[in-house]
Write a protein that binds this DNA or RNA. Structure first.
Lengths: 231, 231
DNA sequence: CGGTTCAACCTTACGTTGTAAGGCGACCTT
DNA sequence: AAGGTCGCCTTACAACGTAAGGTTGAACCG
């Protein structure tokens, strides 16, 4: 009937963005556990199965959540003019910006740690940090290690930054196989870091990201700092 | 019948420990997602509901898992004689030991981050680290901050070490209400650190654990170290 | 204009999850 | 021997993700 027509017309059509926005709001308000397909749909005045026309499944919804948060970080970073001449100030600003966003979405770090893929936006964030450090004179090796240390702080990663899960889809094959050239263009510093590190590593295939070494490096960094602070 | 009797007699009786051991083995083998009540019971040749006579529920099973891992760390630390005269070496050894255990149980850091309570064993681990640092001459303030930094590395915490979740049960009320005296006895360094920090803090109730300050402190520590390493 | 197509949304249903309620047999105590 | 307790099981339920297929209003096309 016309009534129903107008009801339908009144309700804004569902989109991936509207679904994700509702999910973010729900996670912020009631925690990530409240983000169920039925519940998100309910917030949008819709049934659960309707979401599947805009997102392939729950996994993609969760991936979409980290996408939204990462994009929020990127936007916030873009919105401020960073002190490009001082690498420390720039890296610091980027990390602190990421942190403020994480504080707005306390569920985000845990979610990022549990997902099995890293959305491109996140690599873009890494790129910004790596670029600042390399421009500041740090070697790619040092930048690589710093990325682990800082990522561990901001996101609470224990698992590796570049090898997110046990699933086969690690970054390295991903790079080797598909759009390597495109990635090199979009993420020059990161690409340079990866190729440099891969070249230097004893085992170029799997060993370039030696988590034990990263860990000990960061540990020494912290301990040296504490030693000096020990007034 | 007698057959059934002997079967029953053959099967070792369920205990909290046996259930947790089975759950740990399952998590190690197939990931934390495989740890369901039915599945754990199945591994023990038992029905799901039987577990409830030894654990109140799934939450307690998961809490028990982090308990087991923390105890494993404690055992491993106790098993080696630490270089007590060198605080750096001692802290380093404790952290590296914790890390090797985490590597055996890759699901553990994420689980620890998601639980809403911190089992006493974990506080015991903190105590060991705090003690080493204080004996090494670090102030309680510095030790407190170092605990955040190191905990962030080992466990991948983003959330606070001492205020694990949004649930009301933070450490501070917990301390104030219940067995404060017992905790002070068992964890002297930690207790001293808490009272010292609480006393110094501007807002003694909630502000003694200023995560923003912790974060910036660790960040500066890392950045100072990177600056120096920037050869 | 009538018929077809299609996207968006809904209904139903299935298997799996955690767990509340209660049953049943073997042992311990008195 | 009677009764109680302990340990395990059976049954049942609500909520979850999602596969399969139905409905409906709009858009297109002859």
């Amino acid at each position: 009937m016309t009534n129903i027509e107008s009801m339908r017309a009144t309700r804004a059509p569902l989109t991936r963005e509207r679904v994700l926005a509702a999910a973010v709001a729900l996670a912020d308000a009631e925690g990530i556990a409240a983000v169920t397909m039925r519940r998100v749909a309910g917030e949008l005045g819709v049934e659960a199965m309707s979401l599947y026309h805009h997102l392939p499944g729950k996994a993609d919804l969760l991936d979409g959540l980290v996408d939204v948060v990462a994009a929020e970080v990127a936007t916030e970073i873009a919105g401020r003019d960073l002190p490009a001449e001082d690498w420390r100030a720039e890296v610091s600003a980027r990390c602190l910006t990421a942190r403020t966003v994480m504080l707005r979405h306390p569920w985000a770090p845990g979610l990022m740690g549990s997902r099995s893929t890293v959305p491109p936006v996140v690599y873009g964030l890494y790129e910004g940090v790596v670029g600042a450090m390399v421009r500041g004179g740090l070697s790619y090796r040092l930048a690589h290690r710093a990325l682990h240390a800082l990522g561990s702080m901001v996101l609470g990663f224990t698992q590796e930054v570049f090898r997110p899960a046990e699933a086969g889809g690690s970054l390295e094959p991903e790079l080797a196989e598909a759009g390597l050239a495109a990635i090199v263009d979009a993420l020059p510093y990161t690409a340079a870091m990866i190729t440099t590190e891969m070249h230097d590593a004893t085992d170029p295939v799997l060993g370039w990201c030696d988590s034990q070494t990263e860990f000990e490096f960061t540990l020494d960094l912290l301990l040296d700092g504490l030693e000096r602070a020990r007034a």
